[in-house]
Amino acid sequence: MYDLITGPLLWFSFIVCIGGVIIRLVYLFSLSRVKDRVLYNHADAGWGLRSLFHWLIPFAGSAMRMQPVFTFMGFVFHLSLLSVPLFLSAHNILWDENFGISLWSMPDRLADILSAVTIISGLFLFLRRLSRPEVRILSEVRDYILIIITILPFITGFLAYRQWGPYETIFIMHVLSGEMLLILIPFSKLSHMILFFFTRLFIGFEMGGRRGARSW
């Protein structure tokens, strides 16, 4: 089982994730050359980057200041969500053993705390979805499921690290849920992790490059 899920299945997930994202980007790019002249006509690096950075820095956009708790939780969620899988020492050891490359590793204690933070902030987002009327009315079942799928590798990773519960089952679930997440990236709303940069640049061009107005 370990052999299968960390071998062929993992390769499959990586290929689907990266390949899917590339295919999607190429498709959108070629479509945009035909149908989105407006994207290129008003391109302006200064406005584009300002539009981007105002939404990458906490509380830089005015909407973020209107919902400070959500903003804080949202940033904490995204930061821990991205940093734990990339900088967990055990993951880097696997990278190193298999490909001879690795990133900086964070201490296990920190990774442990950040996993808990991801789970808690993810649950906050889930509850916010349920409790704020203007968010609940927008939400579909798949939006709730996506949050659960996103934090699943962190729940199982957290349990596996502490060896709480049936270790082997949890370990397998950890790997499988991580792979599911990778596969979902190009096909679900998770694709915003890449497309975010393009939509932000566009609105920067559209509001700023074209009209001189802010988009944050």
Partner: peptide
């Protein structure tokens, strides 16, 4: 054993 926690047992 092949999984991390099978050798690094708590």
């Amino acid at each position: 054993p092949v999984m991390c926690g099978q050798c690094h047992i708590r």
